[in-house]
């Protein structure tokens, strides 16, 4: 086993020793009630997902409009080409 691997394992072990048992964000965010903890977790997830969902939906919709527009432009160009083509 190389010395680099030994050093990495030792570092990982040291980091693991420093991991706290309970990490509290702040003193006022803690409540012993289960409902409160669930509410915190649920609303954190909700608020984290909201911007991605909203902006993502708008981006997806805009992209769909662009693709739709491109398709109609292609069809229009094809029709123009057919009508102006010499027989």
């Amino acid at each position: 086993m190389s010395s680099v691997v030994i050093l990495m394992v030792a570092f990982a072990a040291a980091v693991l020793c420093l991991v706290p048992g309970v990490a509290e964000a702040c003193s006022v965010c803690f409540s012993a009630r289960e409902e409160n903890r669930v509410a915190f977790i649920a609303t954190t997830g909700f608020m984290t997902a909201m911007p991605f969902v909203l902006v993502g939906s708008l981006g997806w919709w805009l992209r769909a409009r662009v693709l739709e527009h491109e398709q109609s432009e292609r069809e229009s160009a094809e029709n123009d080409r057919k009508t102006t083509e010499p027989r």
Binding site: R33, E35, N36, A39, F46
Partner: peptide, 25 residues
């Protein structure tokens, strides 16, 4: 208007979240 609605939706999401936490507590 869509951008405005997205901003307002975030504001209401914040209000609802705060309400849910206070209700649970």
């Amino acid at each position: 208007m869509l951008i405005f609605v997205i901003v307002e939706a975030m504001m209401f999401a914040g209000l609802i979240s705060a309400f849910v936490i206070v209700q649970a507590a």
